[in-house]
């Protein structure tokens, strides 16, 4: 059981050394370099992914910030618009009121004026009528009955006011 065959030992050693040389050159070295290369690639990809993730997070944060700012802006504009509209409305209303008052005043004045003119016209008309009546009296014979008739006709001719 424990006899050592030196020939077999030599065979083993030679085979093993040859195997180490051949495999190192043609199998292990290429395999290990390829594995190392892939590991490097994976490491690189991971760092890149991490970087991309950080970038995306930063972008997201910025977007959120922008959105918040936009909302603030929108609220401000809305508020300002409302205020402005309110002011404008007040302005327009007050202006309209003033104008209406002015219009009313003008209309009253106009009425007054036309009333005055009507009165004046009536006066001159009455005067003319009186003159014409006097003419008629002078032209016709003057008796009581006639007087009465004349006065009646003149009076009838007067406008009823």
């Amino acid at each position: 059981m424990f006899e050592i065959n030196p020939g077999l030992m030599i065979w083993t050693s030679i085979t093993f050394v040859a195997l180490v040389i051949v495999l190192t050159k043609f199998a292990w070295k290429p395999m290990l370099t390829m594995i190392a290369k892939r590991e490097e690639q994976i490491r690189e990809a991971l760092t890149q992914a991490e970087k991309a993730r950080a970038e995306a997070a930063e972008m997201m944060r910025q977007n959120e910030q922008n959105l918040a700012r936009a909302e603030d802006e929108y609220r401000r504009i809305l508020r300002e618009g409302k205020e402005m509209a309110e002011k404008l409305k007040d302005e327009i209303v007050s202006k309209a009121r003033v104008q209406a008052e002015q219009e009313l005043l003008k209309a009253q004045e106009e009425i007054q004026r036309s009333l005055e003119a009507a009165r004046q016209e009536l006066k001159s008309e009455v005067a003319e009528l009186a003159i014409r009546a006097a003419e008629k009296i002078l032209n016709e014979s003057l008796d009581a009955q006639k007087h009465k008739n004349i006065i009646d006709s003149v009076l009838r001719q007067l406008p009823k006011n």
């Binding site: 051949v22 199998a27 290429p30 390829m34």
Partner: peptide, 22 residues
């Protein structure tokens, strides 16, 4: 020797696979 031949075949074929794809 048979084990050596089998090992060389397996190892070299495996190493060759890496040339195609990582």
């Amino acid at each position: 020797l048979l084990a050596a031949i089998v090992l060389i075949t397996i190892a070299i074929l495996t190493a060759r696979r890496y040339k195609k794809s990582l």
